[in-house]
């Protein structure tokens, strides 16, 4: 690793001030960033750790019935405490391995926006609101392609508000070496309609499968998906799977998610 300074502010305001410095970078749980630093793929002058800020920790219910999760909350804590939203707890409980889940954070996952990460599927699949130190960003506006987000330089995710669905399921086809999703599908049913978000498949990162949403909003059942398929164009192809294979998995996992949610 290149040398850098590290700071551990205890309030959001202090963190924002620290991140205003030149070449400063936010550090969540570090489960992606620390390996990246070891490979010298990043060279910040200052790392600003966001894990010692009490106001960014923990879960609560909003007045509108949304589950609010502090951005520095670990996956392990979401897995244990998101009882109001079991599909989200299950998703968090299958990220990485237990030690990774004790360090990795929701905000870190979203700020990185790995195209194969699990959390982006839940955030987009629920139409969650991403709260930062400066504003609120709708999930539909937040994800802007592989490793790209709407976050500005120095902007910190402080909390995510998940509207709790009537029923939901996340189905992950595990890539067993990385423990990321080879493909993952989040299906959530709301009184207003169904949302389907897909991770691990597209070269553009997480996306909504509009045709499946329309079919499932009309009739929430596995049969409603009959005949629907995603084009392999623009799907990731690597040694773990071709683009055709990933496109196929989207259909399979969406059906499994609906079956599990009913």
């Amino acid at each position: 690793m290149y040398a850098f300074e590290i700071e551990r502010p205890t309030t959001i305001a202090e963190a924002v001030a620290a991140l205003a410095a030149d070449e400063a970078q936010a550090l969540g749980g570090g489960q992606t960033l620390i390996p990246t630093l070891k490979q010298r793929l990043a060279a910040p002058e200052t790392l600003v750790s966001l894990t010692a800020i009490p106001e960014m920790q923990g879960l609560c219910m909003s007045d509108e019935g949304a589950l609010c999760v502090g951005a520095a909350t670990t996956h392990a804590r979401v897995a244990a405490e998101a009882k109001a939203f079991p599909a989200l707890a299950a998703l968090a409980g299958h990220i990485g391995d237990p030690a990774v889940r004790n360090r990795g954070t929701l905000g870190g996952s979203l700020a990185n926006n790995d195209p194969s990460a699990c959390y982006p599927a839940a955030v987009l699949g629920t139409g969650a609101t991403i709260k930062t130190n400066a504003r609120e960003i709708a999930a539909d506006d937040y994800f802007q392609g592989m490793f790209a987000t709407a976050l500005e330089e120095g902007e910190i995710i402080t909390e995510v508000r998940f509207p709790v669905p009537t029923t939901a399921s996340y189905q992950k086809f595990l890539q067993p070496a990385s423990r990321f999703a080879l493909v993952g599908v989040f299906v959530a049913q709301y009184p207003t309609g169904v949302r389907v978000a897909v991770t691990g498949a597209s070269e553009e990162g997480v996306f909504r499968w509009a045709e499946a949403e329309a079919a499932l909003s009309a009739d929430f059942g596995v049969e409603a998906l009959a005949g629907l398929a995603v084009s392999p164009d623009g799907m990731i192809a690597d040694l773990h799977g071709t683009s055709e294979y990933r496109a196929h998995l989207i259909g399979v996992l969406t059906k499994r998610a609906v079956a599990a949610a009913i």
């Binding site: 551990r8 489960q31 894990t51 030690a99 990774v100």
Partner: peptide, 20 residues
């Protein structure tokens, strides 16, 4: 793997300063 505040973590993927 070590325990930090009772939780299992990979000590190669955490800075010493974070364990202050």
């Amino acid at each position: 793997l070590v325990h930090v505040n009772g939780a299992a973590v990979k000590a190669c993927t955490m800075f010493a300063f974070e364990a202050d």
